[in-house]
Design a protein around this nucleic acid. Structure first.
Lengths: 224, 224
DNA sequence: AGGCTCATTGGACAGTTGTGCAATAGCACG
DNA sequence: CGTGCTATTGCACAACTGTCCAATGAGCCT
């Protein structure tokens, strides 16, 4: 029975929940799973969280929030708005490797049943949109990009990204992983009046479609 | 104890499951719910379906397949490819009223846990994409539209639609319902080299964004 | 050293769930 | 009318869930 300070323990519970969530998904994560992951009693969890809904929301907040922070700080380190947009897609692409996109899918589906999860997912989704919209606005201000409605454009780019990623996660093989970034990037360039390639080098097979790509092999592993 | 022929009963079980699913979502639909909906015993269900996974897949197939059929037949009744594409969006828009999009969300999220559901959802998603791609190809052949890669374009349009609809269902209010069709439609026109408005009259507030639309009031009801 | 606070335990509890099976009863056929 | 097939019942079963709580014991303060 190792006794920890409440702050530390709370932290560890959230961390353990994230670990379990990444393995089993939000919907299938139980209090006992989390306790076992920590090596403690299951009663401990409800000493720190009022309900499972709260815990799952907190864990999703941590997992998804970290991705957002990574992208945000990476973008903040870049000066020009267009370069910042390029960083946006570049970071997204790199994050693909350890992809936790199934979490988003679970969060959206669970939103109708778990109020706390819905609130968190809505807040984070909004934050992503704002990050993108703000950068677009900055680009408009500096004259680098042209866009009549940054808010709407940000939503559209994000929703295309989500829709594509969704297919990759839910129906492995239906869409090539690389297309997710490549196609979104091309779309963003066209919406923002940018020259092709301005936001990143899209692999040409991301544009020339149809036939099976002769590009580099990619792992079809479904598990994270 | 009303006795039915196996075919009839199987039919009724699927119908009842669809009804329950529309009310509670795929993930929360139980064998007992379905039995209660039919007014029969719960044991009956496993006399016709090997597992709950099979039943849920069959029910989702029916519900989502019907939507597909409606759109497909509506499109088949139209001659010119561009008009057929316009019908695609028009039918989609009308289907919005009795929106069962939560089912798709559930299906995608459950795909990783329920093999039968994944197979069904993958098949139907592919059918939607093929429907769109074939029509685009026909448009290219007739010279009405220009598109270098109908397959990819179809996926992109569909994924934008899904991504937008997803936000409406999961985070009611984040995106205006009307934007789902309007924005996708405008995007499709640009991808296919069509004149604005060629695929349907997008409400102007679907394009002029930002401020709260002064358009007609729309119900925010979340339940179907 | 002793006491006290509170993190932690381990299990109880009531409610689910999917699944399987003997018994029952409706219906068609002889 | 009786007989057999089988659709249907009703329940048992084991496993699981979130939630709660009295008992325990670790570590800090006096």
């Amino acid at each position: 029975m190792t006794r920890m300070t409440p702050a530390q323990r709370r932290e560890e519970i959230v961390n353990a929940t994230v670990t379990v969530m990444l393995r089993k998904g939000i919907a299938a994560t139980t209090a006992r799973d989390v306790a076992e992951q920590m090596g403690t009693s299951s009663g401990l969890i409800h000493h720190y969280f009022l309900s499972m809904d709260d815990l799952l929301a907190a864990a999703f907040d941590r997992a998804a929030g970290q991705d957002l922070d990574v992208t945000r700080t990476a973008m903040a380190a870049v000066g020009a708005p267009v370069a910042r947009l390029a960083t946006f897609f570049g970071t997204y692409a790199r994050a693909e490797q350890t992809w936790a996109f199934q979490l988003w899918l679970d969060a959206w589906a669970e939103a109708s049943r778990r109020p706390a999860v819905q609130m968190t997912s809505r807040r984070l989704n909004g934050a992503w949109q704002r990050l993108l919209a703000d950068t677009i606005r900055a680009g408009v201000a500096s004259g680098e990009v042209s866009c009549t409605d940054p808010e709407a454009t940000a939503w559209r780019i994000l929703c295309l990204l989500d829709g594509l990623a969704l297919q990759v996660v839910a129906h492995a093989g239906a869409i090539d992983r690389h297309h997710v970034i490549g196609w979104s990037l091309v779309y963003a360039e066209s919406e923002l009046g940018l020259a092709p390639g301005a936001l990143g080098a899209a692999p040409e097979d991301a544009l020339a479609p149809g036939a099976t790509p002769a590009g580099p092999a990619y792992d079809r592993a479904t598990s994270p």
